[in-house]
């Protein structure tokens, strides 16, 4: 004889299935396990103190759910298949950039990530649409972008200063003591700036051939203008070369500082220029600049 359930019992059974099955399935992790509920939910997201407070609060509010180990997972994240989608995005996001371990990235990696952060923030690609759908307030406002760019630029400047500082230090401070001085110079006591070598034109020549000669030569204009004598030259000064309007209007002189900023990210230095290539590593930039300085 079939068992007869009351209406209440049926409802309970349906509820059990509707909630219970997704809850159970959430224990399966087809796209990777992001350990979403492993740690107690934080009221305040803690990110490394080495990131300046303005940028840190933007990152904590709008980025840390995916780009840190302290994800504030919403309650519905306990249910599959939502849990799977969350995990897929979060696992991938942490692989790219995990702000919780910012201090353990080496200087080169940090510079690379900084350039990436600046680019993503400026372009408005982050946070992605699926996140904004639920977290409407997370769209980066102008002041948020400014805070992030402020951090990026100061950190890039610090790295360049560090390069120059090592150059100077070499003559006065024994290498063993340089590291402690470097921390002061870079202003970031937790991060480990790579020991930058003094700029070297020979290494620069090799790098020039690996990085630049697709578009530039020293002697003739290609997709980019000829670079012989670029050091010390005013910007956009090769007659007849079709420079972009912003570069033509820039009126800067190419020296260590301007070339370093330019090579770090041309668009961040002067918005709207044509060159779309960057040299993320401070050491490589320093070496290339040393080469250009002597390539007259």
């Amino acid at each position: 004889m079939p068992m007869r359930l009351t209406r209440g019992e049926r409802a309970a059974a349906v509820l059990l299935i509707v909630l219970g099955v997704p809850l159970l399935l959430a224990n399966v992790h087809p796209f990777g396990n992001a350990q979403l509920f492993a740690a107690p939910r934080m009221q305040q997201v803690q990110l490394p103190q080495s990131i300046p407070v303005g940028a840190r609060s933007v990152l904590a509010a709008d980025c840390a759910d995916c780009h840190s180990s302290v994800t504030r997972t919403p309650a519905y994240g306990r249910f599959a298949p939502v849990s799977w989608l969350l995990e897929r995005d979060i696992v991938e996001a942490r692989q790219h950039l995990n702000l919780s371990i910012w201090d353990s990235y080496d200087a080169d990696k940090q510079q690379e990530l900084l350039a990436e952060i600046a680019q993503q923030a400026r372009a408005g690609h982050m946070p992605p649409p699926q996140y904004l759908l639920v977290h409407r307030g997370a769209r980066l406002k102008q002041e948020d972008v400014a805070a992030l760019l402020g951090w990026v630029h100061s950190a890039q400047a610090a790295a360049s200063t560090a390069t120059a500082a090592v150059d100077t230090l070499d003559s006065v401070v024994p290498p063993a003591q340089q590291k402690s001085v470097m921390h002061l110079v870079s202003g970031s006591p937790q991060s480990q700036p790579a020991q930058l070598l003094p700029p070297d034109a020979t290494r620069g020549a090799d790098l020039f051939n690996r990085r630049c000669t697709g578009c530039h030569s020293l002697t003739s204009n290609h997709e980019g203008p000829r670079l012989g004598g670029v050091y010390g030259r005013p910007s956009a000064s090769i007659a007849g070369f079709p420079y972009s309007a912003p570069l033509t209007a820039a009126h800067i002189t190419w020296n260590e500082q301007t070339l370093d900023k330019w090579l770090t990210d041309p668009d961040a230095f002067i918005s709207g220029v044509n060159m779309d290539f960057r040299v993320p590593k401070p050491q490589e930039r320093a070496d290339i600049i040393a080469y250009l300085k002597q390539a007259q």
């Binding site: 290539f277 960057r278 993320p280």
Partner: peptide, 9 residues
Amino acid sequence: GEHDTATDD
């Protein structure tokens, strides 16, 4: 292509 390789060998 060179765009895929020139930045980081």
